[in-house]
């Protein structure tokens, strides 16, 4: 007896088969215990996947609905766009005239999108902070400098830093590393190390999901610092924070 292919078992269960083939597959399933069992297994796997997908925690809808309604009303929309345009123009001015020292060298998304290991929150928190994993091989560090066009880095001027640290599931992959000025600028490696410690504590306490912490670090770590420390600028205690050694 020729058994039914998995995708047809799936299509049958989802009501996607049509015509004579739908009839034939139904008839086969009536007679074949092997295919019936296999179809059950397929549906079980799909059921778990669907449950995982549908049970994701989402932000409340109310704020998003209010924002949409404001943007849909023509009179308000014009005002919103005008305010947004003014805000964008102001940001552009600030960025253009911001001294480089204030921001330091930022990770570039095309070079350093972030990379994470497959690890659960429980497993990550159970093993404690892994200082060994933070060590970056010299050749990897050199590759990171090369990608950023830094050909002769001054010793002790940079920390080759993880965008997402190993203690939060970050991978030792060049896509997760960038040369961060160690002492230079307001938003430097010491400040980011303080944020990483705070985020790990919150993730392990269950107040911030691991994937959220990873994304926030990867996309805008300064924004994450401001959010979690409630301060527009780095706190004085963090400017002097020392965790990782500079690159030498």
């Amino acid at each position: 007896m020729t058994h039914v292919a998995d995708h047809e078992l799936l299509m049958d269960a989802d009501g996607e088969l049509e015509g004579q083939r739908a009839f034939d597959v139904r008839a086969h399933l009536t007679a074949c215990a092997v295919c019936r069992r296999r179809q059950c297994e397929i549906l079980e796997a799909l059921g778990m996947a669907a449950e995982e997908h549908l049970e994701q925690e989402l932000p409340p809808i109310d704020g998003a609905r209010t924002m949409l309604q404001a943007r849909l009303r023509p009179d308000r929309r014009q005002r919103t766009f005008a305010v947004a345009a003014l805000a964008a123009a102001a940001c552009l001015l600030v960025i253009q005239f911001l001294p480089e020292r204030a921001t330091g060298l930022m990770p570039r998304a095309e070079l350093t999108p972030g990379a994470v290991r497959e690890v659960s929150t429980e497993a990550m928190c159970a093993v404690g902070e892994d200082t060994d994993r933070r060590e970056i091989p010299h050749e990897v560090a050199v590759e990171v400098f090369r990608k950023y066009g830094i050909h002769d880095p001054r010793p002790r001027a940079f920390e080759v830093d993880y965008l997402i640290p190993p203690d939060l599931g970050g991978a030792g992959d060049v896509r997760n590393l960038w040369p961060q000025p160690y002492n230079e600028g307001t938003w430097n490696a010491r400040v980011k190390d303080a944020l990483e410690d705070r985020l790990r504590t919150m993730v392990c306490a269950g107040t911030v999901p691991l994937d959220v912490a990873q994304k926030e670090l990867a996309e805008d770590w300064i924004g994450a610092y401001r959010k979690y420390f409630g301060s527009r600028d780095p706190l004085p205690v963090h400017v002097a924070f020392v965790k990782d050694r500079p690159w030498e």
Partner: peptide, 28 residues
């Protein structure tokens, strides 16, 4: 415009990590 973090295979998970990750939901 804003690439997502890349997920790389777990080559460095400890036995302890693997044991804890054995829970069905986590695995799925």
């Amino acid at each position: 415009r804003r690439p997502a973090p890349v997920l790389v295979p777990t080559a460095t998970a400890t036995p302890e990590e693997q044991a804890i990750a054995r829970q069905t939901k986590e695995r799925v």
